[in-house]
Write a protein that binds this DNA or RNA. Structure first.
Lengths: 229, 229
DNA sequence: ATTGTTAGTGTGTTTAGAACACTAAGTCAA
DNA sequence: TTGACTTAGTGTTCTAAACACACTAACAAT
């Protein structure tokens, strides 16, 4: 294949790290490759960027095609451009990470695809290409960002208990949190709206359900409020 | 030009936002374009990525060729991939930002290039392509990151006074800082090494010069210390 | 020697974070 | 129906960090 272009070109892909939360366990969706190179190995969902779609559009398309999820939180992570990262030829990959709520988008939606499966984020098998590096970067970003932007809610169902929220933060911050201090602080921010519902089908006292009030967050942000946990 | 490749390809460029600090004024280096498109307009230094260099290498090469600077702090910022961002054809650009110390790398080194000039970061002319957007993103990143990583030192000479450092933070945080509280906090971190030198050629009491102790920072980081200002 | 300019220094107050333990509500099974 | 089990929900005290604040010291220039 000879280069007919004025400037040398690299093939361009997007790869997505899709996180989900399953009972206090942080999960990542992986796809088992069918084609060479790395046939049979697990890899992040992703693929080539088309000439008439933006990078964000490509990432959403791949998430929809390969993982069966749509309308999720999505953010660009980093662009990986080592010369030898793909054994075939020069391929530059723009990595994204996405957050999905496993309670509403249940596991089966994605596992229907049969070659996709959820793994605990810190117990993944050996991955194709430099995907292990991408996953590490995504975990670092998620664990860092969850502190100063209210993105964690994207991993929870629309209505959740304060304990679920606390467990999420315990997973991300990798340390136990005091229940009373946590509730005082998070309720004090005024970002949670109490619903009139409570947890169902639990073998103990049922907890109140809350919603994240995104509109209120936008208002407060304009007035200089900054989220911090 | 027809596409002979299996996958559609975009041309790939890097663009660099090079920051410098001039007496408490944050500056950006721009290059006046000689070629179409946008001939005559100011733009960020940058250019096409070669097939056998990494993205970081491409960014450093462009900084060296177009801005005459080497061995500077450099970090990937974001990848811009809107379909119409270049009027000629699809071009995806990996943006970087870099920090240079204008006192040691004096202005002339770069202005020798004649088509390069420093502008105050918040008074730039109209820029080519989507470079205004890239600059905005770089400023936001710099102003955010300077709080929790000691990267500001990259903008200062090796030996600096506490007042210089304070002014740097006042520019980045966009608010005045109390002198006594600032000194207490920054010296309390133990990251500054007092030198035995003082400021020269000033028409008032000369201030002591300090160095940033990068080794000490690495040590402390391992022990869980986190920089915060 | 007087003026101008920046360097350098300490204390009290306020605020936010950290530590900590019991009662309430509900399910389940004997 | 009672007792055992599980998680929900709730305040106060202590501690550490942030904040507000004003004067003297050193040096150069005239």
């Amino acid at each position: 294949m000879q280069n007919i272009y004025k400037h040398p070109r690299a093939a361009l892909t997007v790869d997505c790290v899709l996180f989900g939360l399953d009972e206090g366990d942080l999960k990542v969706l992986l796809i088992q490759r069918k084609l060479k190179p790395f046939a049979g190995k697990w890899a992040l969902p992703g693929g080539f960027v088309r000439v008439n779609e933006t990078l964000d559009e490509a990432a959403r398309r791949e998430l929809s095609e390969e993982a069966g999820v749509r309308d999720v939180f999505l953010e660009q992570l980093y662009t990986f451009g080592d010369v030898e990262r793909d054994p075939r030829e020069r391929v530059v990959s723009v990595a994204y990470y996405a957050l999905v709520n496993l309670a509403d988008h249940p596991l089966k939606a994605a596992t229907d695809a049969s070659d996709a499966a959820w793994f605990s984020a810190d117990e993944v098998p050996s991955l194709a290409f430099d995907h292990a590096e991408i996953l590490t970067a995504a975990l670092r970003r998620l664990k860092g960002k969850v502190r100063y932007e209210p993105i964690g809610f994207e991993l929870l169902p629309e209505k959740f208990t304060l304990s679920q929220l606390q467990h999420l933060y315990e997973v991300c911050l990798e340390e136990p949190i005091d229940k009373r201090n946590f509730r005082k602080k998070i309720l004090g921010m005024g970002l949670l709206a109490e619903t009139d519902e409570i947890q169902q089908d639990v073998a103990h006292r049922a907890a109140r359900l809350y919603r994240f009030d995104a509109k209120r967050y936008e208002q407060l942000k304009k007035r200089g409020f900054s989220f911090w946990l």
